[in-house]
């Protein structure tokens, strides 16, 4: 007797909230660049440009798994202004084990859901374990390593070693070679010149049109003066090669 009732309820939910299915189907995976960390208890914070819906801050949406897909025990914390979520491991990371931080696309920021499922691979490096204490620094050298649909930016809450971050920074700077904006009456024209390595350019869920010759263009109508946009260049395997923030003039 209960089974038909449960089935009926599921059907009613699917009929009433078809977005559940649609939303899941349209979510895209974004794999970020590998990170090397030195702090075995490193916490990760995800900064959103708009307050995040508290109902979507749950461990199913923010979690860390290891290379065997075992989920780590973590604690989630949300900032007072609800714009930052911090994920802290309850036990230390193991040396040379590949971990993955997952931020699911069904997190709601502002009025919309993120439409990307972001994965940040990272590893604890043994070689520099003796320098752990000295490498911890203040938040001034925090590095943006990803952004989801223009709504969030994942920051390491603690800095990384200069040896692992500097080459990345150097490579990154080469990929989005120039970003230009031109305001027309009814939309903004954003032109991005890229390096050979960049195969795709996006801002949030909007994908730029490739015009050839390493030039991408996007015409975006819903922008206001002073609004900030995060432009990301991707490789063919959907790795973020560089992120740039632009301000609409």
């Amino acid at each position: 007797m209960r089974k038909p009732l449960i089935l009926l309820m599921m059907l009613v939910i699917i009929v009433l909230f078809p977005g559940i299915l649609v939303g899941q189907a349209s979510i895209e995976k974004v794999l970020l660049e590998d990170r090397t960390i030195q702090d075995p208890l490193k916490s990760w914070s995800v900064t959103f440009t708009q307050p995040v819906n508290k109902g979507t801050i749950k461990k199913q949406n923010f979690y860390i798994i290891d290379e065997r897909k075992r989920e780590l025990k973590t604690k989630l914390r949300v900032s007072e202004d609800e714009s930052k979520v911090t994920i802290t491991p309850e036990s230390p990371y193991k040396d040379n084990v590949q971990y993955y931080l997952h931020i699911k696309g069904n997190v709601k920021s502002g009025k919309t859901f993120l439409n990307e499922h972001t994965i940040l691979p990272f590893k604890l490096e043994t070689r520099t374990s003796s320098n752990k204490g000295t490498n911890k620094t203040s938040g001034t050298d925090k590095k943006q390593v990803s952004a989801n649909t223009g709504k969030s930016e994942t920051n390491t809450s603690k800095s990384e070693t200069s040896s692992s971050s500097k080459p990345n920074q150097k490579n990154k700077a080469k990929n989005l070679t120039s970003v230009q904006t031109e305001c027309h009456s009814h939309f903004v024209e954003i032109t991005v010149n890229v390096s050979d390595q960049v195969a795709k350019v996006k801002t949030g869920s909007d994908e730029f049109e490739y015009k050839g010759n390493n030039l991408f263009v996007l015409y975006k109508p819903d922008l206001k003066k002073g609004e900030k946009l995060t432009v990301k260049g991707y490789s063919i395997s959907n790795k973020v090669l560089e992120t740039k923030e632009i301000v609409i003039p």
């Binding site: 390595q197 195969a199 490739y210 010759n213």
Partner: peptide
């Protein structure tokens, strides 16, 4: 290792009815 792919679709009278440019970048 890096090139543009320009694809055009043509109808029976060889008129271009659609085109797309895709960027390929070897990793």
């Amino acid at each position: 290792d890096f090139f543009d792919v320009h694809v055009t679709a043509l109808d029976s009278s060889q008129k271009i009815i659609d085109s797309k440019i895709l960027k390929f970048a070897t990793e």
